[in-house]
Simulated assay, not measured.
Amino acid sequence: MKYLQLLPLLTTAHAATTLIPTTCFSSYSSLEEYFSYLYPWGSDHNGSARMVGNSTDHDYISVESDTLTLVAKPVTGQPDTSGGQEINYLSGAVHSKNTFTVEADSGFDIEAEFQATTDQGTWPAFWLNSAESWPPEIDIAEWKGLSSFLYMTSSEVENHETDYSSPESFHKVKAQIRAENDADIWVKYFLDDVEVTTQYGGDYVGKPLYLIINLQMEGSSGSPGPDTDTYYKVRNLSFEQI
């Protein structure tokens, strides 16, 4: 991956187009208008939770009071993943029905409010991932069993760890993503309306991305995970093209 020298940020005014509205969690029909169930590739990823859910099964993926709730529940007797990972939980994930591409001289504003656990073995995330080949990846918010959470523009870029107090409360996270030139992007991150850091990604322009919301368990967040149900809630999600 190519990295950019940190330069002063120049912005150009554009009219915003709403791609995912704040009403996306107002009902199951609204959820399913903008999101599909599970990961784009299926039910398993880098952890011990298997994603479960569809339009008639809402045990792990539910909406109520304009809030998306994902729950991870301990389980036994599940077959391992194709890579040999033991499955200790069933949980929930959704991903955007559409992909989103940063084009030259454009970008996105993405924000939402989160009630996210920081207990050991819990791994909630809110991220953009390539629809074709990896990278690109933009982790807008990721909690890995710590009293902090991470911003990361790909695993090849040094992550930025930020203190995250009062996880039982909702906190607002925002990412401003802009094309720096015809190939590269910058991402400015905010927590509770306070600017935290800016990161850069090389060769991200023109690459389609899915938005993913998931509650993974163990893996990079440590083990053992909790032996009781774990909840992850998201509300007031807004995704705009600038």
Score class of each variant (00 low, 15 high):
K144A: 08
E195L: 10
A93R: 05
E142W: 04
D182W: 00
S36R: 15
K172R: 07
A104P: 01
I185C: 07
A112Y: 06
I213G: 04
S91Q: 01
H14I: 02
T22P: 12
V63R: 07
Y3C: 00
L68N: 09
S55T: 15
Y28N: 13
Y28C: 03
E32Q: 14
T230E: 10
Y37E: 07
A72Y: 03
L6N: 01
A49T: 15
L211D: 14
V94P: 11
E33H: 14
D203P: 14
G92E: 05
F190V: 03
T117V: 09
Q216N: 09
N46M: 05
F190Y: 15
T67W: 13
Y210T: 05
R50H: 11
G145L: 08
P135W: 14
Y151R: 09
E158Q: 10
Y34M: 06
D163W: 07
F190Q: 11
L146W: 03
Y204C: 14
I87W: 03
T22Y: 06
F170Q: 02
E64M: 11
A93N: 02
K2Q: 08
V205K: 02
V94K: 12
E142I: 01
G201A: 15
K172Q: 02
T22C: 06
L209M: 15
Y3T: 13
D57W: 13
E32A: 06
E168R: 07
T197L: 00
S43Y: 09
I110K: 02
W186R: 04
S91K: 01
E132H: 08
D119V: 13
S220I: 14
E161D: 13
T56L: 08
L237E: 02
W41I: 12
N98H: 05
V52Y: 07
H58N: 12
M217W: 04
A183K: 04
K233R: 13
I177D: 02
S155D: 09
Q78I: 14
E111D: 12
P208C: 13
E33Y: 15
E156N: 15
S48M: 11
L10A: 06
S154K: 05
I61S: 08
V205F: 05
Q176D: 10
I140P: 00
E240H: 11
G53C: 11
H95A: 01
Q241F: 01
W127F: 09
N214E: 03
I87A: 00
N46T: 06
V157C: 02
M51K: 07
K2Y: 12
T56M: 08
A15H: 12
F35E: 07
L10N: 06
W123Q: 13
N46V: 11
Q199M: 09
E86H: 09
E218W: 11
P135T: 12
E168F: 08
K207T: 10
S220L: 06
D229G: 04
D59G: 15
V157F: 01
L209P: 08
R50A: 11
Y28A: 07
G84C: 08
S154Q: 04
N159F: 07
E195W: 05
K233T: 00
E161W: 08
N159D: 12
V71C: 05
E132M: 07
Y37Q: 10
S166G: 02
T17H: 07
P167I: 01
I177K: 01
S82P: 06
P40R: 01
S238Y: 14
R235H: 05
S238F: 06
L68W: 09
H95W: 06
D139T: 13
F190K: 06
V196I: 15
L4N: 09
Y34S: 02
N54E: 14
T122C: 14
V157E: 03
L9W: 00
